[in-house]
Simulated assay, not measured.
Amino acid sequence: MKPWILGLTGGIGSGKSAVAQCFIERGVHLVDADHAARWVVEPGRPALAKIVEHFGEQVLQADGQLDRTALRQRVFADPAERRWLEALLHPLIGVEISQYLARAESPYAILVSPLLIESGQHRMTQRVLLVDAPEQLQIERTMVRDQSSSEQVEAILKAQASREERLRHAHDVLSNDRDLGWLQNEVERLHHFYLTLKGGQA
């Protein structure tokens, strides 16, 4: 039987990675949309050639890898360029994710994506688990992790789907505001529940 797909999302600093790791330890097949986004632009892949053709050699590093910072500066400054890039990459990332999920041997598989809702990737899933945390805690965690200022973190929070929007799409919400032991128990509980589901629906 084909595994059903659980979408795992949450704002920056909510603890998505810790939750994802807990599921991996339970043998759940997991693909990370951010990794897929990196794979599609590796040297030798068609997407990279199209990006260079469109933006010029300035978006390449000396070793032929994509210079993400240079590309990001180009598309952030120009919404039309950003749309062009998204139109090229989103379908390719979708294919990459689907192929990877299709190899899953666990009863359900997980797609982790910070932009699950915004990118429309939630349409590839049968159920959505939102990792939620109080905004102040998200800001503190991210500042520690990325050595960034609270202004930088708040700017990222604003760019991501609003919390209300994410909660509206979520079937399950895991409030990650306690310690790791508690988190692991919650994942264990959800995992057992997910194993009883057919096609992701109770």
Rank of each mutant, 00 (worst) to 15 (best):
P3L: 01
W4Q: 06
G7A: 13
T9E: 01
G11N: 14
S17K: 06
A20Y: 07
C22G: 09
C22R: 07
F23E: 01
I24V: 15
R26Q: 11
V28K: 00
L30Y: 06
L30C: 07
L30W: 10
V31H: 13
A33W: 07
A33K: 04
A33T: 02
R38V: 03
W39Q: 15
V41D: 05
P43T: 02
P43I: 04
R45Y: 07
L48M: 05
A49S: 13
K50A: 12
I51R: 01
Q58W: 00
Q58R: 09
L60P: 08
L60W: 08
A62L: 08
Q65L: 10
L66E: 00
R68F: 03
T69L: 11
A70K: 07
L71P: 04
L71N: 00
L71Q: 00
L71A: 01
Q73C: 02
R74I: 06
V75G: 05
F76Q: 07
F76W: 08
P79E: 09
E81L: 10
E81S: 12
L85K: 02
A87Q: 14
L88A: 05
L89F: 07
L89R: 04
P91H: 07
V95R: 11
I97V: 12
S98C: 12
S98A: 15
Q99R: 15
Q99C: 09
Y100E: 14
L101C: 09
L101Q: 06
A104P: 09
A109K: 05
I110P: 08
L111Y: 10
L115H: 02
L116P: 09
E118Y: 05
G120A: 09
Q126R: 10
R127K: 11
V128K: 02
L129E: 04
V131G: 08
L137M: 14
L137S: 06
Q138H: 04
Q138T: 02
I139N: 04
I139M: 06
E140P: 06
E140C: 11
E140Y: 10
T142I: 07
M143G: 09
V144F: 11
R145S: 05
S149A: 01
E151D: 13
Q152I: 06
E154W: 11
A155M: 13
A155Q: 15
A155F: 09
L157K: 03
K158V: 12
Q160T: 03
R163C: 08
E165M: 12
R166H: 04
H169A: 13
A170R: 09
A170I: 05
H171C: 10
D172R: 15
D172N: 14
D172M: 14
L174V: 00
R178M: 12
R178F: 11
D179A: 07
W182M: 02
W182Q: 13
W182R: 11
L183E: 05
E188P: 01
E188H: 14
R189N: 09
L190Y: 11
H191T: 03
H192T: 04
H192A: 13
F193C: 14
F193Y: 12
Y194H: 02
L195M: 11
K198C: 13
G200L: 05
G200N: 03
Q201M: 14
Q201R: 15
A202R: 12
